[in-house]
Nucleic acid binder design. Structure first.
Lengths: 141, 141
DNA sequence: TGGATAATTGAAAAGGATTTTCAGTAAGGG
DNA sequence: CCCTTACTGAAAATCCTTTTCAATTATCCA
C-alpha cells in the first residue's frame, strides 16, 4: 500500500509510514519552491489536521538524511527545504516568487583546476546558486 | 587617532569609535576563517574584557552593512562572518581547518547564458563556493 | 580644556526557532 | 488481531538573537 517512491525509501530505511509522514512528504514533493518548517507545517496540516510542528521538523530531518530534500540557502535564513534532484545539481532561484529550478551545469572543471593550482587546495565539492527573475515575474509588472 | 581603515569607515559613516568596536574590528580583520558571533566574542574579549555579546552582534551588523565583512554559509549554520574581499569574489573553504580563501572567477558567463536561455530566467547574481582541503590539511595526516 | 549631549554600552528580559521530554497512540510483524 | 516498539503531539527546555533600559562615554563646541 506504499505507492510513493519517497515513502518506499523511508520504509526501506526502517521507518514506519504514518499519516504525518505522508502529509509532509506530499507537500515537499509537490512544492515548486523551498519551504520553511512553518510553511511545511501550514501546508501539511491541510492534509493531516492533527499534525504537530515537531513532527514536521523530525520528518524533514529524515527526508534530508535520505537525500530526498535539500536545504536551500538564501542570503539570510537557511532553513528552507526543497526536493533534491538526481545526482549533482545546481539551483536557480527566482528572487520574486521564490520558484526554484534545478539544473545541471558542470562546465566548471577548468575553474576548479585553476583555483586548485593557484591555492594548493584539493577541491572536493562545490556549491553554485543563481538568482534572478523567472519568466512569469519578468512579465508581470 | 584612527589608524585603521575599517574604523575610519565606521567613523565616516557617522559611528563613534569605541573600545568594543576596535576589538571586534581587529578580530575580524585578522581572522583567516569565518567566525560565529560567539567566537568573535571570545576572541574579542581578550582585547576588551568588558565587551558584551550584544555589542558583538551590533558591531557585526554594522560591519556587514558597510560591506567590510560578509556572511559565510556552511551546510548548516549560516551565521559565520568573514572579512569581505574587493569586488565580487567567491569562497574556497577548507573542510578541516575552516580556513577561507577568497578568489575571483568569473569564467561563468557562458554557463549563465545557457541556463538563462534554457529556463527563461533573467539571471542577476550568483553565488559560488568551493570546498576542499587546504595544503596544510592535506599533508598533516 | 572642560561640559553638554547624544550615541553606545552591558545586563537582563523578551522573543523566536528548534530540540528534548514524556505519556499516549498506532504501525506493522507475527 | 495482538503485542511490541516506533512515532506522535504538547509542553517544557534550550539556544540564539533582538529589544529594552539605565548607566557610561565619545565627540562636539564653547
Amino acid at each position: 500500500m506504499v505507492d510513493n517512491p519517497w515513502l518506499e525509501q523511508l520504509q526501506a530505511a526502517g521507518y514506519r509510514i504514518t499519516a504525518a509522514r505522508r502529509a509532509v512528504t506530499e507537500v515537499m514533493q509537490s512544492s515548486e519552491r523551498a519551504l520553511t518548517p512553518i510553511e511545511v507545517y501550514d501546508a501539511a496540516r491541510k492534509r493531516d489536521r492533527r499534525l504537530g510542528l515537531v513532527t514536521v521538523y523530525r520528518t524533514l530531518e529524515k527526508l534530508e538524511a535520505l537525500g530526498l530534500i535539500q536545504r536551500v540557502h538564501h542570503e539570510h535564513s537557511c532553513q528552507a527545504f526543497l526536493r533534491a534532484g538526481e545526482g549533482h545539481q545546481h539551483l536557480l532561484l527566482c528572487e520574486r516568487c521564490r520558484r526554484a529550478i534545478l539544473f545541471e551545469g558542470d562546465d566548471l572543471d577548468a575553474l576548479f583546476e585553476r583555483v586548485g593550482e593557484e591555492t594548493g587546495f584539493e577541491i572536493r565539492s562545490h556549491w553554485l546558486q543563481l538568482y534572478g527573475l523567472c519568466w512569469d515575474c519578468q512579465t508581470d509588472s
